[in-house]
Design a binder for these strands. Structure first.
Length: 679
RNA sequence: GCUGCUGUAGCUCAGUGGUAGAGCACUUCAUUGGUAAUGAAGAGGUCAUGGGUUCAAGUCCCAUCAGUAGCUCCA
């Protein structure tokens, strides 16, 4: 008599000993098919494991749970580490080897560093280890013994981790497979044969415990799946994702250029990309006017004094372009043999003045606020500017449009009273909603950053902070989608709401942001005269629905996979002539469309129609207008739609009306094969 | 900034120490066609930059610049 207790507490009874597989079968055929292995008391057991006894606690692990995949991948990480230890000479320190969304990695410190040329050897060794089919055996040891084991293995990271990271654990578990033993919480798969297919992906540097001041380790990335088909599918998806990468599409579609000679992270907008950017600006401007914003312009530089008052200099000096010093001062300093360090010290001390390329727009806007006396009747004052700012981002961090050194924020600063704060925040959120809504971007996450209750770095009255955090929360609620509240994520000057999207490779980027600020009004001594005829301190809201035009457009290119909706497409339609005989009619059609306000070009080459259509498809044109003798005779165009394909001939006026309506309504139409939006 | 990889024609890439290559794009000519590639010819290069090794360097070594995967950072 054997009985098994399932995770839901139910008991299954059997006449004699049973295998895990048989238990699964007794529950259902589907489960038996999906079952990969069992788990008894955290110990994985294979499907043919014989269960005996009463009330044996059994969990059946299936393929359709991510947990199974993660367990298998983590076991594969052990196999990989074991293979590396067999292959590489010299000392090898193991760090951590967790799973990630797409696979797993293991961190090593090696005397003989890894390179990609080691991959085939490591993969072959892994295959050998898997073929041996040795189980992962769990060992539980008391602290002292555990430390001793790691010390004997000369695994100093593990010793440190037991003493610090796992200081509260009385016992520690290890998993051993053949000669390889590793401190590990588990669980593992019952047999390495469960690792269906694996592949080493890349090597990268990573700091021990994520701390830049600690040792830099080598991180070996890999992935694994239960079947070769799944791995192949994954690799194919990765390839597809690369094709919609905005850096690839930007080049292919001629949207922007970044030139070595101009400088790292400095974007040159080509006509097509500039057009898209202008459309987006016009779009948001329309809504800003409706919401009572005032547009301003401010210069790209400002005196150091401005940033000393704001507190951005010298505190953020390292992430700014060096200050601009006037010519006379510069030559005097050069004669004195002044070093960069001295120059910087003198600047912070205020001994010499200079100008900074603006790293943000707020100080300039504050000075506009402060340029006249303000009454409570003037508030809220909303100053908006597409303000270009420059930041000295670390060289290794720069890439494409998503992290650059010069970028334009769709910035605005709202000067409000405490009573107005909540409503104004809701207004800001509304704009963000309009932006994401117009793009059909639904897949973004919202984070409300609150102060750390134990922190002491925050400026402003705690009572006002409570009100502001509450206001942020309520504003976020108006989005009608879930958001996270994160303690300690607020800036020191106020709470904020951030909007984060993923790019085509799964990296997260913050786009829109709405931030409450108690600090700058204080530092600049801003006031307004209240109804009580006494001066009061306004509160500032910094907000940018797009975030930066560069980053937003980068993410947007990937979201649409380059197939922009008609209102954003730089080239909305192209006239294709069937032969040169129809060129006159084609040019007439092109001209009429242009007169109707559409962005249209013509392809009058002596190519075959098929070739012209192919080129148009590759350029991701929303519409192609095919004209031949038949159309010339009937005054029609044959419309080829990016989504629907050939729509047949229709009168030119009908086609124009259709396009104008689609532009007017900012319709977002998605083809089925463009992935449905990675962002 | 750090670790790994990469840099060859406008683009995508081949080229393991011995005369610089392909496809696409471009130009010209022929062709005049109805929904994803007509044919032929031509032009196009300081092999990222600067040093070094060698009889000889696109190829090997070093440095710099840039790109890239990741780490760290991001007012």
């Amino acid at each position: 008599m054997t009985s098994v207790q399932l995770p839901d507490g139910s008991i299954k009874e059997f006449e004699s000993s049973v295998t895990v597989k048989e238990v699964a079968k007794s529950i259902g055929r589907g489960l038996a098919k999906a079952a990969l292995w069992g788990e008894i008391d955290l110990q994985p057991v294979p499907l043919d494991h014989k269960i005996e006894g009463t009330k044996v606690p059994l969990k059946i692990i299936t393929n359709n749970k991510n947990a199974a995949l993660e367990t298998m991948r983590h076991s594969c990480a052990h196999v990989m580490a074991r293979a590396v230890m067999r292959i590489k000479k010299g000392s090898i320190q193991l760090a951590f080897g967790p799973t990630t969304d797409n696979g797993f990695y293991y961190d090593f410190m090696l005397e003989d560093p890894l390179t990609e040329s080691d991959f085939p050897k490591i993969e072959a060794e892994m295959a050998k280890i898997i073929a041996l089919d040795e189980p992962f055996e769990r060992l539980v040891e008391p602290r002292e013994k555990a430390v001793q084991i790691c010390a004997d293995l000369k695994q100093e990271f593990k010793v440190e981790h037991i003493n610090e990271g796992l200081a509260d654990d009385e016992t520690l578990s290890f998993y051993q497979q053949g000669e390889f033993i590793d401190l590990c919480r588990g669980p593992h798969i019952p047999s390495p044969k469960q690792i269906g297919a694996f592949k080493l992906m890349s090597i990268a540097g990573a700091y021990w415990k994520g701390d830049q001041s600690r040792q830099q380790l080598q991180r070996l990335y890999a992935t694994a799946f239960f079947t070769q088909e799944e791995l192949d599918k994954h690799l194919e998806n990765q390839e597809e994702a690369k094709k919609r990468d905005h850096r690839v599409l930007g080049k292919k579609l001629g949207l922007f250029h970044i030139d070595e000679m101009v400088g790292q992270g400095l974007v040159l907008w080509t006509p097509k990309g500039a057009f898209i950017r202008q459309q987006l600006q016009d779009f948001i401007l329309f809504h800003l006017r409706k919401q009572g914003y005032d547009q301003v312009f401010t210069p790209h530089i400002g005196k150091l004094d401005l940033y000393k008052t704001s507190g951005h200099f010298p505190y953020y000096e390292d992430s700014q372009y060096p200050a601009i010093v006037d010519r006379d001062t510069m030559s005097k300093l050069a004669e004195e043999g002044c070093t960069c360090g001295e120059l910087s010290n003198q600047m912070s001390a205020g001994e010499i003045d200079g100008y900074l390329l603006k790293p943000m727009n707020c100080p300039h806007h504050i000075k506009i606020y402060d340029s006249q006396q303000r009454s409570y009747r003037d508030l809220p004052l909303r100053l908006a500017e597409f303000g270009t700012v420059y930041r000295w981002e670390q060289s290794g961090e720069i890439g494409g449009l998503t992290r650059v050194r010069g970028f334009t924020q769709d910035d605005a600063h709202l000067f409000v009273t405490q009573e107005q704060l909540a409503d104004e925040l809701i207004g800001c959120i509304k704009l963000v909603k309009i932006v994401f809504g117009a793009m059909g971007m639904e897949d973004y996450s919202v984070r409300v950053g609150k102060r750390d209750p134990d922190g002491d770095k925050y400026v402003g009255d705690p009572k006002n902070w409570d009100l502001a955090e509450q206001a942020c929360r309520e504003a976020a609620e108006t989005l009608g989608k879930p958001f996270t509240e994160e303690e300690g994520e607020a800036a020191f000057y106020g709470p904020k709401i951030d909007f984060v999207v993923n790019d085509c490779l799964g990296r997260k980027w913050q786009l829109g942001t709405v931030q409450v600020d108690y600090n700058l009004p204080e530092r600049f001594g801003l006031t307004y005269i209240g109804a009580d005829n006494a001066p009061h301190r306004p509160i500032m809201i910094h907000r940018a629905p797009f975030g930066s035009m560069e980053r937003f457009i980068g993410v947007m290119i990937e979201h649409f996979a380059g197939s922009f909706p008609l209102w954003l497409a730089p080239e909305q339609a192209r006239v294709l002539t069937v032969s040169e005989k129809s060129e006159d009619y084609g040019r007439k059609v092109e001209q009429q469309l242009i007169s109707a306000g559409l962005r249209v070009t013509g392809d009058y080459r002596s190519e075959k129609l098929g070739a012209k259509i192919r080129d148009g498809r590759l350029d991701l044109l929303p519409y192609m207008l095919i004209v031949g003798p038949r159309d010339a005779e009937n005054g029609t165009v044959s419309v080829r739609d990016r989504v629907e394909g050939d729509l047949g001939a229709m009168p030119l006026a009908q086609a124009i009306a259709r396009f104008q309506q689609e532009v007017e309504q900012k319709t977002v139409r998605r083809t089925h094969d463009d992935g449905g939006g990675a962002s």
